[in-house]
Amino acid sequence: MRRHHDMGGLPAGPVEPVEHAHAPWEKKVDAILRLLVGKGVMTLDELRRGIEDLGPGAYDELSYFERWISSISNVLLEKGVLEVAELGAAIEAARARREAAA
């Protein structure tokens, strides 16, 4: 069966020639991935599998690097590199830091 990411040859609308300069946070996602792959913590195949596991809804609704960081964090949780509770706390800390700076 064809999965939702396997779209080669399917009908689709015109190719919109859109581009955008990557935001700093998007480059940060890319850098995290490169370092983790370089150190053997995770592989590109695991990144892709994690993206495909997001399911059709998230796959189409999230932006490109949102899919990446979602997959990276899930893979790191699966591997035990990160734990759910500490990740939740770190997200809250990052938000609080941003609010305090505003």
Partner: peptide
């Protein structure tokens, strides 16, 4: 500051704190 931006900073902060990177 989106949820995914916070997730990105959080993952980086933890990887730095743990010495993974």
């Amino acid at each position: 500051y989106s949820w995914h931006m916070a997730l990105t900073d959080a993952v980086a902060d933890l990887l730095l704190a743990k010495g993974v990177i």
